[in-house]
């Protein structure tokens, strides 16, 4: 007898395969919400054909992520750009360190986390970039996978959209940012590699902006909208959850590529509460 859940365990039953029509066994199980590889609170029901994802159903979206308090303050009053951009760089680097850990670069991941604690405006990330390129991180699992369509990228917003070549960033409308010579960075490819590079590029840009802003003591001038590391947040609303994109994005990907793809995307909604100081 096949299929069903004898002894409370999912048991596979042969079904058409995604790839070549050979009838193999799909395996269904749930992942999350306590697995540190996935965003906190995220759980899904997955069906695998061998190592390949045939279907994924999100059963619980991740908890809203709390941004540093400065991003919410920026909606109330002009805030120093130096502080805002430093917080942005830290946020992106934290995402990158998670992606490094997921792809087996534990040491490099810890190095990045340590850098975050001592990050100063004007710091250069060139060394980190060269290092990651030399060890082949940009060719590790999932690098060329997880390609977002334009609609999907727009829905997610933020760095993921810019990595898909959509040159949208609220900061370019802010005259203060224009004074600092801000240029929108956007990538192409829209795959995991593009998003990893986008984080790195934006973190580096944020650090150099922060250095210039600190010299000139510049504050933001636009209090209606702020570009958070997760996307545009205005008085009207903050970036909402985009986890359901995964249901279209992941089928057909091999497991490790799917996990790398999840780690390359920041999909959780932004919480109404700010991150509490440590």
């Amino acid at each position: 007898m096949m299929g069903g859940k004898p002894y409370g365990r999912a048991m596979a039953m042969t079904a058409d395969d995604l790839r070549d029509g050979l009838q193999l066994d799909p395996l269904s199980f749930s992942v999350g919400p306590f697995w540190p590889v996935l965003p906190p609170g995220f759980s899904a029901h997955v069906t695998l054909h061998g190592d390949v994802i045939a279907e994924i159903q999100v059963t619980s979206i991740p908890y809203p992520v709390a941004l540093p308090a400065i991003f919410r303050q920026a909606l109330e009053k002009p805030v120093p750009i130096a502080e805002l951009e430093l917080a942005r760089a830290c946020y992106h680097l934290r995402q990158l360190s998670h992606a490094l850990w997921v792809n087996g670069l534990e040491s490099a991941s810890l190095t990045v986390l340590q850098r975050i604690h001592a990050l100063q405006p004007g710091d250069s990330l060139a060394g980190l970039r060269t290092w990651l390129r030399r060890v082949g991180f940009f060719f590790s699992a999932g690098a060329e996978k997880g390609v977002l369509g334009r609609d999907q990228a727009e829905k997610i917003g933020g760095p993921a959209a810019r990595a898909a070549g959509i040159a949208q960033d609220t900061r370019q409308d802010d005259p203060q940012y224009q004074r600092l010579g801000f240029q929108v960075i956007y990538g192409h490819g829209s795959n995991c590699r593009a998003r990893w590079q986008q984080w790195l590029d934006e973190a580096e840009q944020a650090l150099s902006l922060a250095a210039r802003a600190r010299e000139q003591a510049v504050c933001t001038s636009d209090c209606d909208r702020v570009e958070t590391p997760r996307g545009v947040m205005g008085r009207g609303g903050s970036p909402s959850d985009a986890t359901f994109v995964l249901q279209e994005l992941l089928p057909g990907l091999e497991w490790s590529e799917a996990i790398a793809t999840i780690a390359s995307l920041d999909l959780a909604a932004v919480s109404d509460y700010a991150e509490e100081g440590v």
């Binding site: 991180f137 060719f139 590790s140 699992a141 091999e254 590529e257």
Partner: peptide, 11 residues
């Protein structure tokens, strides 16, 4: 082992 990232098994 410490230096190199993991490729995807497929690749």
């Amino acid at each position: 082992g410490r230096l190199l990232p993991r490729l995807s098994p497929d690749r």
